[in-house]
């Protein structure tokens, strides 16, 4: 596998250039969150989800993504926010992270932006809300504060 990667090596630096400092931002309520674009595989609109018994409530179930079966998490429920009806803006962000492919249900997707490293600061050390622990960094940019997600913790099963 490593071999083929080298064979097509030309595209490597290019991709890392285009994804560097690039974030996909989305809304939960009025807050904006960001995920590094390199972790994002694709975006799909809301689709039928098959429940899997015996799982925490934020684990919504599985969906059929072009023949591939992937799990789906509801970010609202993960953040323990009050439930909200899915609507036409509800979106599933498919991420590939740590060998897992998972869908994240979000209220709506905003845009892809570049966030310079120097505008990113760590979150306040006092963790007041339970969902604070899923925030790795905070970016203070034009158009409002973006909360950058810590996927490691978000996907961790407890």
């Amino acid at each position: 596998m490593a071999d083929s990667g080298e064979a097509y090596g030309v595209s490597e630096p290019e991709t890392s250039d285009t994804v560097k400092d690039r974030y996909l931002t989305f809304y939960i309520d009025s807050e904006q969150y960001g995920i590094e674009i390199s972790d994002v595989q694709t975006l799909i609109s809301m689709t039928a989800i098959t429940k899997i018994p015996d799982n925490p409530d934020y684990v919504e179930g599985i969906i059929n993504l072009r023949g591939e079966i992937i799990g789906v998490l509801d970010i609202r429920k993960r953040f323990q926010k009050p439930p909200k009806e899915y609507d036409e803006l509800t979106c599933i962000i498919v991420i590939a992270y740590g060998g897992l492919t998972l869908g994240l249900i979000v209220d709506s997707v905003n845009e892809v932006i570049t966030i310079a490293e120097d505008s990113i600061v760590p979150p306040p050390s006092a963790k007041l809300n339970s969902y604070n622990r899923f925030i790795r960094n905070i970016a203070n940019v034009e158009g409002g504060v973006k909360l950058l997600l810590d996927l490691e913790r978000l996907l961790a099963r407890e």
Partner: peptide, 9 residues
């Protein structure tokens, strides 16, 4: 198979 994110049900 069910994705490995899910525990065996």
């Amino acid at each position: 198979s069910i994705p490995k994110y899910f525990k065996k049900v």
